[in-house]
């Protein structure tokens, strides 16, 4: 279905040159397209600008709107970032998040590749049903699982360890990745595998030497998506981790940087900004993969 949609998309894009765009005059386009689009962009991006501005402001500017225009910085300072990096556990949170994210992503990708290949290519009895069940597993939200999972994590002695997160994150990663990879495997011609079978290759050789190299774009899509989802995960990390040095970035910034009723907005915003940057940077390198996995998954 993905490739059908892709060809349709290409055809539509080719048609577009002769579309009805020529009927639109420039002033009309400015009012109906550019002005609303710029409004959208301002609203969608303003919170990031505000994060950055707040991070770089010294405290006397931050809380004095009468003398300083809040939209601009007069004397930028790195004090808030310095405080975040050297006076809090932020580096530890960053390291924890990276370890948990990398391990959970690797585990989920390994399980998903095998499962997707089995469902899509080995076509065992009931493969369709298993595929459907995996899709349904994606619809089970973490909010209804975290309480029983918390008791399980406690019972297994994993409470307050990274293993609690590494083992639970794949529950929402595997369904998505499997689903995505099934679509990719489907688009690889089966004839290639048949040739290899006739030449005497084993199934494992086929998966390793033929299917996987062809599915690299799918693996990248699934990998970066899993990475982002685990990096952003919040409720499990909040419920299963209690000590500050074991927390992940989203949980640490929210729970440890607020001391009583005093909000240090400068360092809070610095924490938010620096927690967002890794995913934003990764995203900027792989935009096309993100978009294709996002839309591909929905279309399937």
């Amino acid at each position: 279905m993905t490739d059908a949609a892709a060809t349709l998309g290409k055809k539509a894009a080719a048609d577009e040159a002769q579309g009805m765009d020529y009927l639109m005059t420039l002033p009309r386009k400015v009012v109906t397209v550019y002005v609303p689009l710029i409004c959208f962009l301002i609203v969608l991006l303003f919170p990031f600008y505000w994060m950055a501005v707040t991070t770089l402001k010294p405290n006397d500017e931050l809380y004095d709107y009468a003398r300083f225009n809040p939209f601009w910085i007069v004397n930028p300072t790195l004090r808030n970032i310095e405080k975040l990096l050297f006076e809090t556990d932020y580096p530890a949170w960053l390291l924890n998040t990276m370890v948990v994210t990398a391990a959970a992503t690797a585990l989920a990708l390994f399980a998903s590749v095998l499962a997707a290949y089995a469902i899509q290519r080995l076509r065992f009895k009931g493969a369709q049903t298993v595929g459907l069940l995996i899709f349904l597993a994606y619809l089970v939200p973490p909010s209804i699982l975290f309480i029983p999972l918390a008791t399980m994590v406690f019972g297994l002695g994993l409470y307050d360890t990274q293993w609690a997160l590494i083992l639970t994150y794949p529950t929402f990663l595997i369904p998505f990745c499997t689903w995505l990879l099934m679509g990719y495997f489907k688009s690889i011609p089966y004839e290639l595998e048949e040739c290899a079978l006739i030449d005497g290759a084993t199934r494992i050789q086929i998966l390793w030497k033929i299917t996987l190299p062809l599915a690299v774009p799918g693996l990248i899509s699934a990998g970066i998506f899993a990475f982002t989802l685990s990096w952003n995960e919040f409720i499990y990390a909040l419920a299963f981790i209690s000590s500050s040095e074991n927390k992940t970035v989203p949980v640490g910034v929210l729970t440890q940087l607020v001391e009583g009723d005093v909000y240090h907005w400068g360092s809070l915003m610095a924490g938010a900004l620096f927690g967002s940057l890794p995913v934003a940077v990764l995203y900027s390198f792989f935009v096309e993969y993100y978009v294709s996995s996002l839309t591909g998954a929905v279309k399937e």
Binding site: F48, V249, Y290
Partner: peptide, 12 residues
Amino acid sequence: IVLLPWIVPTVL
């Protein structure tokens, strides 16, 4: 850049 709000961690 339109996708940015969806990419960054919700809590942040």
